[in-house]
Nucleic acid binder design. Structure first.
Lengths: 235, 235
DNA sequence: GTGAAGGCAAGAGCGGTGCTCTCTTTTTGG
DNA sequence: CCAAAAAGAGAGCACCGCTCTTGCCTTCAC
């Protein structure tokens, strides 16, 4: 029942893809604010009003692009991950993949992690693909056990409850304090990438490659992922 | 010679302020993408073309708003700082002030730290006010010496050079490794605030207050700012 | 096979935008 | 007092998102 049956349906599916492809092309060139349905229609040789048969509004088209972008970023990160490698290395690989994807698709990255589209609120279906990265990081954290101990004291009650709820909702066997480490590393990662991409590191860590590697290694320490046994020359 | 002399000049200065004020009002309501010169002109009862006597383009108006916003945020952070307090507490105060300002002015914050305005590249004069926060954090770091030791090994050569250049350019007596800690904490802070503001913490650390306090305390540890002497009951 | 139903493209049109140009009025300074 | 400079107003251009109507053509039921 999932098969595309009639010629009309086939044409519709293909045109939908073509519209998204052209929109993504223009998005990469001029950014989301300058992306216009009319110019997409022009490039495809169709009337602007015809686009509305496929996407009821510009926001709906952007939502589709956001969904695709989340999945493209998730794919890139998961493809870069090597589950057989040491957890610390896996974390570094995922971080590097996120950064590289962002550098290669800055406008799409901005669509995901920059200013939300005006008047736009993320529909429910974007929530799940948006968590692929952090879920993969959670897996890496689990694989890295036993983690080095970190924060000594107990968490504040409300925070503890939130973190327990997160772990339960995600089906993760992580303690509340470990969830906080995860969320901190996650936001740190995207803070770094965003700062680099949006020019905040100009005149300081620029180019940001070495700093990014250093910072993600530090975050690996923070996460409690142990360094590989150093090859000691004398022992 | 800085005095405003003629009535015309006085009117011009006042109207410039009024335009910015109205633009900021609309920015707070609808966001930068929806901010229009025409609606500002309408609200001020003047022809849209007249605005161009004061700001040669929409981007120039936005640049002015960005500059003001950087300074407002810097003011908020500096006002919250208490130089006589313990460095660790000062760091927490500055972090909280940044977050509170961002929550109170989400669209202005997005203008500063969200997706850059399309086709817009930060002019030189926005660079300096944009560093007020991190400069204040650097002062706090200096006041917090001796910092607890952190990263053991030497930095990669290129990174070391960059960090030395940063310290020299800013006139900061901080070692390269300390600069990396500073930049990490800085990007972490804005990563946290951005994630909260743009909804990435929905369904996890939401509301984000407790998590934010926990995370900034952890970052204080990371920076090497010592915890206050716990009051030990037993001497 | 045929006719009704409905998906679809196209065009005109509405109200909005940034920006420019021209024309007129007002203010300034010699 | 008068020329020059500055400022305001209006029309207009090209673009935008979106809607509505019209007519074509595929699809489906009989």
């Amino acid at each position: 029942m999932n098969a595309i049956r009639t010629a009309r349906e086939r044409a519709r599916a293909e045109l939908t893809l073509e519209i998204k492809r052209e929109a993504r092309r223009q998005l990469a060139e001029v950014g989301s604010a300058q992306l216009s349905l009319r110019s997409v229609a022009r490039a495809l040789g169709m009337a602007s009003s015809a686009i509305y048969r496929y996407f009821p509004s510009r926001d709906e088209l952007l939502t589709a692009l956001i969904l695709d972008a989340y999945n493209a970023l998730g794919d890139a990160a998961e493809k870069a991950d090597r589950p057989e490698a040491a957890p610390r290395e896996r974390w570094m690989l995922v971080c590097a993949a996120v950064r590289e994807w962002a550098m290669a698709h800055p406008h799409e990255y901005a669509l995901l992690y920059g200013t939300p589209v005006p008047g736009y609120k993320a529909p429910a279906e974007t929530l799940d693909p948006g968590t692929r990265i952090v879920r993969r990081c959670a897996e890496i954290l689990l694989a890295g056990r036993p983690l080095r101990p970190a924060f000594p004291g107990p968490l504040e009650a409300e925070l503890d409850g939130q973190m327990r709820a997160v772990a339960e909702a995600a089906g993760l066997d992580l303690r509340p304090e470990e969830i906080t480490r995860l969320l901190m590393a996650w936001s740190q990662l995207f803070g770094l990438v965003g700062f680099e991409l949006f020019g905040q590191f100009a005149n300081s860590a620029d180019p940001a490659g070495p700093f990014f590697r250093h910072a993600t290694a530090q975050m690996a320490d923070f996460l409690g992922l142990r360094r590989p046994r150093p090859l000691s020359a004398g022992g």
